[in-house]
Simulated scan of single mutants.
Amino acid sequence: MAIYQRDSFLAELSAQLGRAKPTQVTPPTLPYDVHHQVLQDASSDELTEQLKAYSQNALGARFELVTQADFSHRLMQVCCDYVGQSNQETVLSADPRLTALIEHSDFEKANLALYQFDETTPETENLRHVEAAKVGVVYCEQALAESGTMVLYSTSKQSRMLSLLPEVTVFVVAKSTLVARITQAMEPLSQQATDGQRIASCVNLISGPSSTADIELTKVVGVHGPTEACYIVLDDL
């Protein structure tokens, strides 16, 4: 965008201030680098505790820390808690990192109806199952400990509908991918763009169940999305 009469304006302004017209901009030196300093020395355990405290106290989300060996059985129990006697389906993302952890026999023994998202199936068929499901289970790229935020990449195996349409969203995230805040979450995306790599068509940052406080600052949950959220942190360290 052209800036008309910029040079003459700066020359006049500089003359009034009694100094030469600047020819370059010198960025200021800031004494702090807060967006990198917050929780920069926190260990994985400390980030986990921060994520747990914020997600439970501020967001009202359920929190579970499980081992890989116990994951499938614990996920089944979580889904059963939400489904209850409704006989509604639980839909699973087709992300291979998630499917590798699932033992379908655990769900069969609990008589839990399970639907596996399939990118080769017509979208209308996937949509029919997802929008009627009680629980949607997705795999996250990262979690932001400071704000209880889950970072989801949209892919052909993990559509956005999985985290937006069911009444409950279960977010699975590896403990090793917990970071302090959004600054660190954007770094790999920035690097991918710099390297010319293709990045996800959509990056969703989700903090707890759907809520709003637009009207008289009264918080209402479940206005435009899932009414409940569960964070399952997979202890892979």
Rank of each mutant, 00 (worst) to 15 (best):
Q37Y: 06
V38R: 10
L39A: 15
L39K: 06
Q40L: 09
Q40V: 07
D41V: 09
A42P: 08
A42K: 12
A42H: 13
A42L: 08
S44G: 01
S44P: 08
D45M: 07
E46P: 05
E46R: 02
E49F: 06
Q50V: 14
Q50G: 05
K52Y: 03
Y54S: 02
Y54A: 03
S55N: 10
S55C: 08
N57M: 09
N57T: 15
A58L: 00
A58E: 14
L59F: 00
G60E: 00
A61L: 01
A61W: 00
R62W: 02
R62C: 12
F63H: 00
L65R: 10
L65E: 04
V66M: 02
V66T: 15
T67H: 03
T67E: 07
T67P: 01
Q68W: 04
Q68E: 15
Q68M: 10
A69W: 02
D70C: 04
D70N: 13
S72D: 13
H73A: 15
R74S: 05
R74E: 04
L75E: 10
Q77V: 13
Q77P: 05
Q77M: 09
V78Q: 09
V78M: 06
V78E: 07
C79F: 02
C79D: 03
C80L: 12
C80P: 07
Y82H: 14
V83E: 03
G84A: 13
G84K: 13
Q85M: 07
Q85W: 07
S86D: 11
N87F: 06
Q88N: 09
Q88Y: 05
T90G: 09
T90M: 15
V91C: 05
L92H: 04
L92M: 11
A94L: 09
A94E: 09
L98S: 13
T99P: 10
T99M: 08
T99A: 14
A100L: 03
A100W: 01
I102V: 15
H104S: 11
H104D: 15
E108F: 03
E108Y: 06
E108V: 10
K109L: 11
K109E: 13
A110Q: 14
A110I: 12
N111P: 05
A113V: 03
Y115W: 06
Y115Q: 01
F117H: 12
D118S: 12
E119C: 05
E119A: 10
E119L: 06
E119F: 08
T120P: 03
T121Y: 04
T124Y: 07
E125I: 04
R128G: 15
V130C: 11
E131C: 14
A133G: 01
A133N: 02
A133R: 07
K134D: 12
K134C: 15
K134V: 04
V135K: 02
G136E: 12
V138C: 09
V138L: 05
V138R: 08
C140F: 15
E141N: 12
E141A: 08
A143W: 02
L144A: 06
A145Y: 02
A145H: 02
E146M: 11
G148Q: 01
G148N: 01
G148Y: 02
G148P: 02
V151D: 06
V151N: 11
V151L: 03
S154I: 02
S154V: 07
T155L: 01
S156Q: 13
S156W: 06
K157T: 08
Q158H: 08
